[in-house]
Design a protein around this nucleic acid. Structure first.
Lengths: 352, 352
DNA sequence: CAACTCATGGCAACCGCTTGCCACTTGCTG
DNA sequence: CAGCAAGTGGCAAGCGGTTGCCATGAGTTG
């Protein structure tokens, strides 16, 4: 036994309540958890006494026996990335709705840290949502054997997944640019490990092939504002009239880099981002972007996880795919070959 | 007993490991938790067997007995407010450092939701950090009796608190504006319930009195971008050459509202925010702001909490006060009476 | 009026792990 | 070689709840 035992400092247990109420502990327990099982009056009396004593059931003790903690873990690649704010919020709301508490496991963009954080909390949670995980498929599968698990923002065959319909989003983005007269565009790539990056780039290539457009890829770049700023250096050696960035962070940085160069948006270059994070509407011009259904993403994942925990068969077939929405702001405009060319003083490469 | 019992589906316990290793459970337990207490070879052998079997100690069972879960709760007024990102990050890092896992309790700006979230998790955590809490002092004190607790961004007498030195920050802001020739400034107030708002406004009044400056207060306004946008409506009826906003969200909105009116920043109006959140460096012009030590705030609170959990006497005297730092960007400039007056077409009120 | 059903409450085992205390084995010392 | 200390390992009592099963008493039925 631990040292403790300091008088009545310790919080009251069902034993204390039972003694005070003159009933057995089992009756107290049932008064709380099994409504009909105890005489209504008795139950009410017990509850009254319990609340007077300041009794609260110890969730650990309950969990030890029932195997349910009512806590779920949300693993996030990088808490400080505003992209995740919406997801966290949606997840949190859905969790509360279902009577669950959320444990936040921050991966800090590291495979190892993510696994450690999860390792530490896996014993205390009923299920896990893996968001933009950096772990390998096999590590994910191993984890899935331990607890119900949902993969968010990535497809792992055989595991329930929730993703954004990047392909459709890219289609919207390209259609928008095409309407504006652009026939050539540069894709600013994100990190190679990012699942979304490969999906987006591949979608763009396919769409370009279909429509006979010219696309060029630069990168990889870190998915940050700084990454976007440096991408401009690479871009200026081979400019185009339109830029599609891996995500909004990169796009925002790209906008900054362009401004530093004196290039005008959208007159010289049109820029499109992905996700519609906080800040995209604040910059000048506002960033045109393919909005991800962030809150819905988080909420959907949690709801599905809760269902699985509740015994529903995990949805292991096709991933759930959520739609995007194109948000047009000021950063995209008509293609003007001359201006683009002039802005980067790059002789005859205009349009290429 | 719960139904379960499905073959060897259940994870191995120390009993299984003990049987496999041919030792007593206590020896297995000690092999993990009490290094010197067991023969090194035996311990190594046990650990090998345990890891082969996929054994992991059940934190719930351990916590039930020891009373320690190694989890701390971080209550946040509103997860989606970028202000908290830095705090969360700092807190998370400090928690990991100390071997703790973080449980996120979102209050959604509501006294009731905050209390509920905390109620649900208090049994599973070793301590609590209350960030910008909306609860009453008495509710906070009650909670503090249940668990070690640190109050962040608010001063509650008798409880350990960590706050930003708003007074000093305000002094820096005013000094900066004064140097630019401003002698009259408007404060755009945040929500009345916010502790920081009252501290900031009072500091401004005192400093203004000292220096013989004219200050005017408009608001309260919600601490959001939208709140800042609408504040402009009130501002234009009685403009000034300099605006100090309750925080960056409001300042960012104010900038937007000003732009919509065609007023130039900083030529017509100078604007200063507080906190230095994500996005302040992305807008044009960049927002001059009094940076709060966000990560340090979160980390300090957690470190202090961990120390208290570890048995250190809680620091209940004066609150820990962390310094601010003035970040000068493009939104502040020299005072120009004529331009300010002209921008708002307000006849002779220029300078007032 | 006996037999039976049903509502209610109590007993006690158990969840998985920790730890105080005791027993046993070695290796020394006097 | 007896006596003792130090080093190891085991026993068993919990931590605070939950729940299967049984006992009791009241109400119901033939």
């Amino acid at each position: 036994m631990v040292e403790q035992r300091n008088g009545d400092q310790r919080p009251p247990t069902i034993y204390d309540v039972a003694r005070a109420a003159g009933v057995a502990v089992s009756t107290v327990s049932r008064a709380f958890s099994r409504p009909g099982r105890v005489n209504a009056e008795t139950a009410a009396r017990i509850r009254k006494i319990a609340s007077d004593m300041g009794y609260r059931t110890n969730p650990l003790a309950r969990a030890l026996l029932t195997g349910r903690t009512s806590v779920i873990a949300l693993a996030i690649a990088d808490i400080t990335n505003p992209y995740y704010f919406g997801i966290i919020r949606g997840a949190q709301a859905a969790a509360i709705d279902a009577g669950y508490t959320m444990l936040l496991a921050n991966a800090q963009e590291s495979d190892r840290l993510e696994r450690e954080a999860l390792d530490r909390s896996i014993g205390m949670v009923d299920g896990i949502v893996l968001t933009s995980t950096r772990m390998s498929d096999s590590a994910i599968r191993k984890m899935a054997r331990l607890r119900p698990l949902i993969v968010l923002n990535r497809v792992v065959v055989g595991l329930p997944c929730v993703v954004t319909d990047h392909r459709h989003g890219m289609r919207e983005a390209v259609a928008h640019l095409t309407e504006l007269g652009h026939t050539s565009m540069t894709y600013v790539a994100g990190p190679e490990a990012a699942w979304a990056d490969s999906v987006r780039w591949q979608a763009l290539r396919e769409i370009a092939a279909e429509r006979g457009l010219k696309v060029h890829r630069i990168g990889p770049h870190p998915p940050t504002v700084a990454g976007g700023v440096t991408a401009v250096e690479q871009f200026r050696t081979q400019p185009a009239g339109a830029v599609i960035a891996y995500n909004d962070m990169v796009a925002l940085g790209f906008l900054q880099g362009l401004a530093a160069l004196g290039a005008k948006v959208p007159a010289d270059v049109s820029v499109i981002g992905f996700d519609n994070i906080f800040g995209t509407e604040l910059v000048t011009p506002g960033l045109t972007t393919v909005a991800s259904p962030l809150q819905t993403l988080g909420a959907t994942a949690v709801r599905q996880l809760v269902a699985t925990i509740g015994g529903a068969p995990p949805q292991t077939g096709d991933p759930v795919m959520l739609p995007t929405r194109l948000v047009i702001r000021g950063s995209t405009g008509p293609f003007r070959r001359r201006r683009t060319a002039a802005a980067f003083r790059s002789g005859s490469t205009a349009g290429g």
